[in-house]
Amino acid sequence: MTDSAPHAGEPHGEGLASRLNWLRAGVLGANDGIVSTAGLVVGVAGATIERGPILTAGVAGLLAGAVSMAVGEYVSVSSQRDTERALLAKERGELRDSPAAELAELAAIYRAKGLTPRTARQVAEELTAHDAFAAHADAELGIDPEDLTNPWHAALASAVAFTVGAVLPLAAILLPPASARVPVTFVAVLLALALTGQISARLGQARPGRAVARVVIGGALGMTVTYVIGHLFGAAGI
């Protein structure tokens, strides 16, 4: 079995890492909402000054994106949870059929972490006596059987994050007068992307400058391309 010993004995660190992963996923979901909706509404604004088509396209893009994000996250997390459950079921069977071998395997994990053979054996025996299944799930698999990821929670969080991000460009394109819609949206979106890029970089302990530059340049290019295409189609009367 794969040795996932670094997960063992660090419940607080693992919980913090899990929360940071959720926060990072939320930031990335919001970033997706900002970029995709901004590109859509700016493209329509390039073709027409009418609020109706812009609002319709923006709301449709928001809803479609949120649903797509939720479904994708649900499928992904469900697959991960199914894998975790299969590994846990396999571990239960091994503990039932070969308890001595599993005890030796647990002791070997703690020896690999730096304990003496005698201490590792004692730790393995005490953990096995307390809760053999939980001890092996943690030390071997890095899984907490009582805290498996909920796909519904993941789907909801992803949809909410996308929606929050999508609301910004939608409001920025609809609230100003027609002549200021596109410039206001560009500025609002690029500022929001700079913020999400910085947050994402700090969560990943990376340099904020490079991360911010990537998302800002990418967002600017995306909006520019969709605006030009929308303007060309609008001018052609298509």
Score class of each variant (00 low, 15 high):
Ala5Gly: 12
His7Phe: 14
Ala8Lys: 01
Ala8His: 00
Glu10Phe: 09
Gly15Lys: 14
Gly15His: 15
Gly15Arg: 15
Leu16Asp: 13
Leu16Thr: 11
Leu20Phe: 08
Ala25Met: 13
Ala25Cys: 04
Gly26Tyr: 01
Gly26Asp: 09
Gly26Thr: 01
Val27Ser: 09
Val27Asn: 02
Val27Ile: 15
Ala30His: 05
Gly33Asp: 07
Ile34Val: 10
Val35Cys: 11
Val35Arg: 09
Gly39Val: 07
Val42Thr: 03
Gly43Pro: 03
Ala45Pro: 01
Gly46Asn: 04
Gly52Ala: 14
Gly52Tyr: 10
Ala57Phe: 06
Ala57Lys: 04
Gly58Trp: 09
Gly58Ala: 13
Ala60Asp: 10
Ala64Ser: 11
Ala64Phe: 09
Ser68Pro: 06
Ser68Asn: 05
Met69Leu: 10
Ala70Leu: 08
Val77Ile: 08
Ser79Met: 10
Arg81Gln: 10
Asp82Met: 12
Arg85Cys: 11
Leu88Cys: 12
Lys90Ser: 15
Leu95Ser: 04
Arg96Ser: 15
Ala104Tyr: 02
Ala107Met: 06
Ala108Trp: 01
Ala112Met: 05
Gly114Gln: 02
Leu115Glu: 05
Leu115Val: 03
Gln122Ser: 11
Ala124Glu: 06
Ala124Leu: 12
Glu125Pro: 00
Glu126Gly: 02
Glu126Phe: 02
Ala129His: 12
Ala129Gln: 10
Phe133Lys: 01
Ala135Pro: 01
Ala135Asp: 06
Ala137Ile: 05
Asp138Thr: 12
Ala139His: 07
Gly142Phe: 04
Asp144Arg: 09
Asp144Ala: 12
Pro145Lys: 09
Thr149Gly: 00
Thr149Met: 08
Thr149Phe: 05
Pro151Glu: 01
Trp152Cys: 14
His153Asn: 04
Ala159Leu: 09
Ala161Met: 08
Thr163Ile: 08
Thr163Pro: 08
Ala166Val: 09
Ala166Tyr: 05
Pro169Leu: 01
Pro177Arg: 14
Pro177Gln: 13
Ala178Lys: 14
Ala178Glu: 11
Val182His: 00
Val182Asp: 06
Val182Leu: 07
Val184Phe: 00
Thr185Ala: 04
Phe186Gly: 08
Leu191Cys: 10
Leu191Ile: 15
Ala192Ile: 03
Leu193Pro: 04
Ala194Ser: 15
Gln198Leu: 15
Pro208Arg: 03
Pro208Glu: 07
Gly209Ala: 15
Gly209Phe: 02
Arg210Phe: 11
Ala213Gln: 02
Arg214Tyr: 10
Val215Ala: 03
Val216Met: 15
Val216Glu: 07
Ile217His: 08
Gly219Leu: 05
Ala220His: 07
Leu221Glu: 07
Val225Gly: 13
Gly230Phe: 00
Phe233Asp: 00
Ala236His: 00
Ile238Ser: 07
